[in-house]
């Protein structure tokens, strides 16, 4: 607890601005994912922006606080969920048309009454799935690298 107070007192400006900025970064990331259909953007780009907010939190507040906020189990589950959504939508196209359609032929999912609009909605679902996976993977990579680096620094300090 006292360590946390020291960080807060040392880096008041960074901490306050991060606390204000992180929700807006995440909102912008969701905007980029969903508006990938009508402007530049899409799943990959939005996922990276979302993950950058977690990385900002880690850089400012340290590994301990970030580890409490973003638990490993939830991150691992999210990694699978996104790509599940993508592969699952493809499989759904086969199942819901009883074998007439091919894999990833979004037009046959009966969400609206028009063939082309079904394609647009299928594409949106798929982009959301990609965004979730990319976010979880970049968070995972960054957290594991920082954790290993901290462990190495601790091992260097011990024999001294």
């Amino acid at each position: 607890m006292s360590e946390e107070k020291r960080i807060y007192e040392r880096d008041v400006i960074t901490a306050t601005i991060s606390r204000l900025m992180i929700p807006f970064i995440q909102l912008f990331a969701l905007y980029v994912i969903i508006h990938g259909a009508s402007g530049p953007g899409g799943g990959f780009q939005g996922g990276v922006i979302f993950a950058s907010s977690f990385v900002l939190y880690l850089v400012v507040f340290g590994l301990a606080a970030a580890g409490k906020r973003f638990p490993e189990g939830a991150n691992t589950a999210l990694m699978s969920t996104g790509v599940y959504l993508y592969a699952g939508v493809g499989l759904l196209c086969i199942l819901i048309s009883l074998g007439v359609a091919e894999y990833l032929n979004y037009g046959f999912i009966p969400l609206t009454h028009m063939f082309e609009e079904n394609r647009a909605l299928g594409m949106d679902l798929v982009e959301i799935g990609i965004g979730i996976t990319v976010m979880a993977v970049i968070t995972e990579i960054f957290f594991n690298l920082v954790w290993k680096k901290e462990e190495e620094e601790k091992e260097k300090e011990e024999p001294r």
């Binding site: 691992t76 589950a77 990694m79 699978s80 790509v83 599940y84 592969a87 699952g88 493809g90 499989l91 086969i94 074998g99 007439v100 091919e102 894999y103």
Partner: peptide
């Protein structure tokens, strides 16, 4: 019309992907 066997090549890959994600969860 596609016979069920013609869907098998994609199903091999789709099942494999879904099972990889399931193992992680």
């Amino acid at each position: 019309m596609l016979s069920p066997v013609e869907q098998f090549p994609v199903l091999i890959i789709a099942i494999s992907l879904l099972s990889a994600f399931t193992i992680l969860v």
